[in-house]
C-alpha cells in the first residue's frame, strides 16, 4: 500500500525537471519532500496526482497504474500551491463540493477548522488573500481523510500563529498512522521535527531518501582548532568546512568517533544543517 514512482522523468522544453526518479511513499508515515525552490518538488507532486503526465516512468498507487484512473487518483488529496476552484465559487461552496467528491471528507471538521482560522465563509475563493487561500486549501486537505494527503508548501503566506496551528492540527488529524502524508516544503527548520522520512531533491534528482533519523544521525559537526579538526576529518567523508580565524567547523558524514580528541567539540546535526551542507556540497560539484 504505497504511492510508487518508478524511473519517472519529465522535462519542460528541454529542461530536465525530473530525472529518473524512483520513490515510494507509504506506511502511514509523514514524509518530508525537501528541496530548494525549483528543485522539482511541485512537478513530482503534480505527476503523482495526474495534473501532469510524466515523459517516461510509472506512477502506481496501491499497485495500480494511477494516471487517468479514478480509483487510484481518488486515494490522494493534494493541497496544491495553485487554486483549481471555479472563479465564482465561494469558500463555503468549496468546502461543500469537496464533500461531494470525497466520501471520507469530514465536512464538520472542515467547518470547525475554517472557523478556528477565521476563514471568511462568504467570500469568493478567488478573492482570498495569499494567506487565506493557503488556509482554505490546508483546511480541505486536513479534513480530506484520504489514504494519502499531500501538502505542497502549506504555510505559504501564513503568519506565525497560523503556522503553529497548522503543524499542531496536522499532527492531530493526520499523524495517527492512518494516512500517509507528504509535506513538501523549503522551510526545513519548521518541518524537521514533524518528519519521519525525508526525501531530498535538487535539480530534479533525488539526493537522499532515508529516515530523518538516519540522515541526521549520519552526520555530525566538529568544531575546534584547525589543526585538530583537520586531523579528525582526515580520511572521512566531509560535507563541508567553515573556518573563522583558527577555529574550524567541519560537517562530517558518519557517526562520531567514540573517543574525540580533547579540544574538539562534537554535536549532532539538525536536519536543516544537514540539508544546507548537502546543498553546499552539491553546488560545489
Amino acid at each position: 500500500m504505497a504511492i510508487e514512482l518508478k524511473n519517472v522523468s519529465k522535462s519542460f522544453g528541454g529542461v530536465h525537471a525530473l530525472s529518473d526518479v524512483s520513490l515510494s511513499f507509504g506506511g502511514g508515515k509523514i514524509y518530508g519532500l525537501l528541496g530548494p525552490n525549483g528543485a522539482g518538488k511541485t512537478t513530482l507532486l503534480n505527476i503523482i496526482t495526474n495534473r501532469l503526465y510524466a515523459d517516461s516512468g510509472e506512477v502506481l498507487i496501491d499497485g495500480e497504474a494511477a494516471p487517468g484512473r479514478d480509483r487510484a487518483l481518488g486515494k490522494v488529496y493534494m493541497m496544491a500551491e495553485q487554486n483549481l476552484f471555479p472563479d465564482s465559487m465561494k469558500v463555503k461552496g468549496a468546502l461543500k463540493i469537496t464533500a461531494d467528491f470525497i466520501p471520507s471528507f469530514d465536512l464538520e471538521l472542515a467547518m470547525e477548522l475554517a472557523q478556528k482560522f477565521g476563514l471568511p465563509m462568504g467570500k469568493k475563493v478567488k478573492a482570498l488573500s495569499t494567506g487565506y487561500s493557503s488556509i482554505l486549501r490546508l483546511v480541505l486537505a486536513l479534513s480530506a481523510g484520504t489514504p494519502y494527503v499531500i501538502f505542497d508548501e502549506p504555510v505559504l503566506g501564513l503568519d506565525a500563529q497560523h503556522r503553529d496551528m497548522f503543524y499542531r492540527l496536522l499532527m492531530e488529524h493526520c499523524g495517527g498512522g492512518g494516512q500517509t502524508v507528504i509535506l513538501s516544503t523549503h522551510l526545513i527548520q519548521e518541518a524537521a521535527p514533524l518528519i519521519e522520512h525525508a526525501v531530498i531533491i535538487k535539480g530534479g534528482r533525488i539526493l537522499r531518501d532515508a529516515s530523518a533519523e538516519e540522515l541526521t544521525g549520519a552526520a555530525h559537526t566538529v568544531t575546534g582548532p584547525a589543526g585538530l579538526v583537520d586531523g579528525y576529518i582526515a580520511g572521512r567523508q566531509v560535507l563541508n568546512t567553515t573556518a573563522i580565524g583558527g577555529l574550524k567547523t567541519a560537517c562530517v558524514e558518519g557517526e562520531p568517533d567514540a573517543r574525540v580528541p580533547a579540544g574538539l567539540e562534537v554535536s549532532a546535526m539538525g536536519l536543516q544543517d544537514y540539508f544546507i551542507s548537502l546543498m553546499n556540497e552539491e553546488d560545489a560539484k
Binding site: 487517468g68 488529496y77 476552484f85 472563479d87 484520504t146
Partner: peptide
C-alpha cells in the same frame, strides 16, 4: 477547463 480543474483537484480522472 473549469471542470477538468475541479475534477483533478478532487482526484477525478480527466476522462471522467
Amino acid at each position: 477547463r473549469e471542470d477538468l480543474r475541479l475534477g483533478i483537484q478532487n482526484g477525478v480522472s480527466r476522462g471522467t
